[in-house]
Nucleic acid binder design. Structure first.
Lengths: 354, 354
DNA sequence: CTGAAAGCGCTTACAG
DNA sequence: CTGAAAGCGCTTACAG
């Protein structure tokens, strides 16, 4: 079986306590015995049992990480960053994916909370009024959502979004469309607010569509609505939606970056791969993950009652191939979706805009 | 503080043992006391401490999952499937990402093995001769790699690959190129072998390039080599490479699906999104993950020495937009990369193939 | 610096 | 069916 402290104690003809100290608190034991114990432990292949240790000290060395959807490319970089940072501090990561089911978040957190020292909640979808319950469960830090009285790493979208609008305005766009994210998404509210402000400032007409799920398929769906909207540029809630949108526009033989401009949000790895490459607002997910670990771990060591830090990370626009000058005149076919928009657009017709 | 069994025992004026039984082995206690204990436990908000339980019973209710790279879209569906299946059996998942560093796999497994009941190793890159060491550590099942004497869920590429070659042959392709995956990848060996066989069978000329890392950037890099090869169709080690390849070919104004055909492997979510959509060999990753959990959990309950199951999953071709008829004549510019291929191709020239 | 002992919160033979 | 007790493997005051 596995070798235990008792085995080593026997082999070294000393007490279990001394062995324990030699291994986990070396300064407290005589250098000679310490050396001997450590050598024997190594020879016997001893590895401390983290479960027993956890029970004794009340710390597991594990943190829980809850994300809405691993398959959404926005999250893997965050997960990787969390793991990397935690690993460097001898902390393992228990991961849970809620499949975008807001209602499951609390339950998952509740279960996980018993086996971890603390929780990192990434982009939680739980409604505002129940967020406090997480805080009761365990030390928790929120990423991508600001929670009253709890440490939060939030992303300030305004810089990136302002840059995006400026970029489009400089290219001559005057009518842009925003594809909303999920209805109760905190990020979406923030992005929308920033966008409204920027558009007002630059006198750009803003058309809103959605809400859409942060999935490629939603972008495909959005494409036809976008074409009907008469906008010359689109900003999507995230890259996933933007990608689906681009794919569908391409199917319709629209050349993105020339006939219509598209901007995503997240700057996920795929934005470099799409064709054309996707102009996107860089969201520092990895950084947020790493900072979250630092704050959580610091919090575990600290005396509770120091103020909950709120870290705000900046965004910035990364310009790629999907944005270009506004077309001076543009063909919009409204065949199938004209009716959706009411009387504004002559249906079953082709019209020019601008 | 947290409520313990002792608290409930006191509240119910019964013994701790009875409380324990009422909660975890209800049949062993008198219905009336059982009810009362369960009610009180609920009222007091009791949740069993999994750490203490683990120490007592020698089972943690956690399994470890080690993957090479969460950011590679092939893995998230597997991870999700593992979590879903494990969750249904009250098992949590401790995730580790090795960043494609084969050398880290054993160390990660070693550390994790102490805090989990068993391990699932997905696509391990560890060399053959060290694989046995995993088995010493803990109950382990391998996914996407066959390991002597250990339960393995493997993917049989031959069906999908044969279908791919048939498909290309039917479209008139006679010279196809394979972009190899990582040098010591077990999957790559298998895919290559299947491909050679299929090509031989259909008298198709097979050109091999690579090895390439399973990343988009590698595909971008491969594109120029592919163009120089004179192949009219390409099968890439995975979708990532295929996607990078397509993006770069598009930059070169080649129309994929018409000027050249591309087939990926994995059928990852992105293959539906790319433009053109990517013909790809479907690899049942999610299914493999779910089966791995079943086998691992079954193994934990079983008496060790029953034979290690090897489950073989099938692949199949999913045809999308990136494959089409072989061009009857095709322009290949070999300017920059001709020299790489030796004298076969006139360098700094344009030539016709077929 | 070292050892004996209590304790972390649970489970589970063993008696009764 | 129920209770007292031992034990899981470690840590850590407490004495010495």
């Amino acid at each position: 079986m596995r070798v235990t402290l008792a085995d080593i104690a026997k082999a070294c003809e000393t007490s279990l306590s001394t062995v324990s100290r030699a291994l986990s608190d070396p300064d407290k034991v005589n250098p000679q015995t310490r050396e001997r114990i450590q050598r024997v432990a190594r020879e016997m292949g001893y590895m401390t049992n983290p479960i027993a240790r956890a029970l004794a000290v009340g710390r597991t060395g594990v943190i829980g990480l809850i994300v809405p959807d691993i398959a959404n490319p926005f999250f893997p970089p965050i997960i990787k960053a969390v793991q990397a940072r935690a690993g460097r501090k001898d902390t393992a990561v228990l991961l849970a994916d809620t499949d975008e089911h807001a209602a499951d978040e609390l339950e998952r957190a509740r279960v996980l909370s018993k086996q971890v020292d603390g929780l990192i909640m990434v982009s939680p979808r739980t409604p505002e009024d129940r967020l406090a319950e997480f805080v009761q469960l365990a030390p928790v830090v929120f990423v991508n959502r600001q929670v009253e009285g709890a440490p939060s790493i939030i992303i300030d979208n305004s810089d990136g979004i302002t840059q995006a609008v400026q970029h489009l305005v400089a290219l001559g766009h005057r009518r842009i469309c925003y594809l909303n994210g999920p209805r109760r998404s905190w990020s979406n509210d923030r992005r929308r607010a920033a966008l409204k402000e920027a558009c007002a400032k630059y006198s750009v007409e803003l058309i809103e569509l959605g809400p859409f799920e942060p999935q490629v398929q939603a972008g495909v769906h959005a494409a036809d609505l976008v074409q009907a909207s008469g906008a010359t540029a689109v900003i999507a809630y995230d890259d996933q939606i933007a990608l689906g949108l681009m794919a569908r526009l391409a199917e319709h033989r629209l050349q993105v970056g020339r006939d219509i401009s598209v901007i995503g949000i997240d700057d996920s790895p795929m934005s470099d791969v799409a064709y054309p490459t996707l102009t996107s607002i860089h969201v520092p997910g990895a950084e947020a993950g790493a900072v979250a670990v630092d704050i959580l771990l610091a919090q575990l060591d600290a005396d509770d009652a120091d103020p909950a830090p709120v870290v705000q990370l900046e965004t910035r626009l990364v310009i790629r191939g999907s944005t270009g000058p506004a077309p001076t005149q543009r063909l919009v076919t409204t065949e199938s979706i004209g009716p959706l928009l009411g009387g504004e657009i002559p249906s079953r017709a082709t019209r020019r805009t601008d």
